[in-house]
Write a protein that binds this DNA or RNA. Structure first.
Lengths: 244, 244
DNA sequence: TCATGTTGTTCCGTTCCACGGAACAAACAT
DNA sequence: ATGTTTGTTCCGTGGAACGGAACAACATGA
């Protein structure tokens, strides 16, 4: 089980998850556990391929990866059909809007649109967060079958803020409420000062995604946001059915 | 100069540019020029790494690439600061909006937002088109120095539609007009039935991007779009200066 | 200016695994 | 039933990846 050259290249690239930030050769060597000459040689290859870039001593992910990543069908197609509905939702609420799908026990964000005000959030396009800590995640979890919930609860629940739900019983109750109302709420469970409301997107009986609105805690008013989120999720559900 | 395993992996992945569409093993073998057993073995490795996915006989790009691609700093940072301005521009025009940068003699699109109406366009996020055939491209070209224009004109100009500019003299004239007005126009030069207007984004004396509005030919009215595009481009220029 | 640690780079003998032709199996077409 | 294409396995061989060691290019401090 000695790692091949390809594996090592993957290990190097994986270093850049989740920060993406620039690393120097020594840091890469340390973080990957690979000998320095090996990283040096492989990094040169990766640069030649456009998968890495280098300015002085700084290594970064290369533009070619952006190009390839944008073509991944499972991501691109859903994002494309969802975009108009996300626009609608954004215009209706003028708040930060998310589209996410489930990947294992995490939610992966496919899109995130917002206006000028920044709103510090841990969510990034292509990034992932624990299902139990986000509105999108809970919306996905509540409609993905009991087995998934059981498996999730078989391990301790992660915590991103002091408000994250870590009590299994409480999460179960929350999910039941979501199943009844069709809406998931989240209050400062992923980031302090930010609340969130989400709704699931269905296609052919399965839950394929969820979309949400994130709002600064002080001006969070579920009653106003709920209809907009519901409308967008339903519209997207119809559109997804039509395109797949 | 025999290709390493990494090179071959890159060759395989590059097959999926620009269509991204699913390929079968034989097609991959043919398109890459690699022997079938080699593709078979490498594809298995790539699947293990999440860079490819396979359903039955269909190979596709894998989700991991989306994750990595979303982290590429040069792309992500600009897209992030540009998004609010693209939103403004979209709301002002309610038409398809683009953000693009130059890469060699092509324009690469970083973002593309639109409403419900489809509008068949050759532009895709992460995809590239010839500089001379798009409004975004011409806006970039007009403000990237004379040497670049000379080099572009040293080879025959590509043509995407019968309206694409292929006459060097005509392109030069067009670029001069763009330099004066600060706005680039394009009428069915990239796709039939679609017109476009673009403006460059400056940061520290160099042109870092351009943004555009694409409109069905029949309702294209430059006078109405021009101020919105200009405003967005100027706003983004200011924001980019501030963040870099 | 020299001493000292750190980081980046080159060298090269050894090892080991990637390679792909050939043979086989499976799926389709006729 | 028969040919044809596609997917998969096998395996002996060659060559390329490997990484310790030595070197070079900096940076830091006295």
């Amino acid at each position: 089980m000695t790692a091949s050259m390809l594996d090592k290249a993957a290990i190097i690239l994986d270093c850049f998850i989740p920060s993406g930030g620039p690393y120097r050769l020594s840091e890469l060597s340390e973080r990957t556990g690979l000998p320095k000459p090996t990283v040096h040689r492989l990094a040169a290859d990766l640069i030649r391929l456009g998968w890495l870039e280098r300015t002085g001593p700084q290594y970064r992910l290369g533009a070619k990866l952006f190009e390839l990543g944008s073509l991944v069908p499972r991501r691109r197609d859903l994002r494309e059909t969802a975009l108009p509905f996300l626009q609608d939702l954004f215009e209706a609420t003028r708040e930060t809007v998310h589209l996410g799908v489930r990947e294992g026990m995490d939610v992966v964000y496919l899109e995130r649109i917002h206006g000028h005000e920044a709103l510090r959030l841990p969510s990034r396009i292509g990034g992932s967060l624990p299902l139990s800590c986000t509105a999108v995640g809970k919306a996905l979890l509540a409609f993905s079958g009991a087995e998934l919930t059981d498996e999730l609860l078989s391990r301790p629940l992660p915590r991103l803020t002091p408000h994250s739900i870590t009590d299994p019983a409480r999460l179960r109750m929350t999910l039941e409420k979501i199943q009844v109302s069709g809406l998931a709420y989240e209050e400062q469970e992923a980031a302090l000062g930010v609340s969130c409301i989400a709704a699931p997107v269905f296609a052919g009986g399965t839950t394929v995604a969820a979309l949400s609105v994130a709002v600064p805690r002080e001006r969070f008013s579920p009653a106003q946001l709920a209809p907009a989120v519901r409308t967008a999720a339903l519209g997207l559900s119809r559109a997804v059915r039509g395109s797949s």
